[in-house]
Amino acid sequence: MLLASLQDVSFGYGDVPCLEHATIEIHTGEFIAVTGPNGAAKSTLLKLALGLLKPWQGSAALSACNREGEKLTIGYVPQQIASFNSGFPSRVAEFVRSGLYGHRNWLGNLKPEEKEAADEAMRGTGTWELRDRRIGELSGGQKQRICIARSLAMSPDLYVLDEPTTGMDADSRIRFYSLMREQIDRFGRTVVIVTHNLSELESMLDRVVTLERREEGGWKCCTTTLCNGHFAPVESLR
């Protein structure tokens, strides 16, 4: 199932174009890495796909529903989210549970299974021991991990992660990539990740979207489909 697509999209900030004629498609059950040098509009590409930015030209579409016909849930971890205000008065457990607030839970207490999902997300990301700490007291890598735990707690259909491993040590990074692969293999979810460490996770990926500079200016998308045997049609996962 097609979850998101950009067709011949161009975009820029002010009058300066940064992305030109980009076309990508994101299907259910894929693990896609977006890579390219600094300033190659990788984050912009994700924001366009999520509908957070409107393209200058071309079309961007995001599916409203998942395969079951329910509202599509997205676990988005932006690049700067871990640099939140260090004085923010919140504990790690409260922050991770806030992933469940979304559109379906504005009032009332969280259900026991939702709390369990949040606890599981903290255990999965190695942040369980930090659950009673103030989020402002954490290191950069720990902050990054609680942001990931928050999106994991949501059990979203689509993960969109913008450089989520910034500040993490090598072991945590590898554990994180495996966790994401497991989300796809076990639950048929979709992961799009912006990364500079392609070599570390290449073996787990289905596709790599590389942003390359065009001769006439701006950046274009080049998609490489990897044959790692991971990608399976969603129907077969079910």
Partner: peptide, 21 residues
Amino acid sequence: FLRRPLYLMAFDEESAKTSGV
């Protein structure tokens, strides 16, 4: 009624938007 969405927005408006707020 809106304390939870406001909490999400206080962190990051873009991720709140993608969460359906």
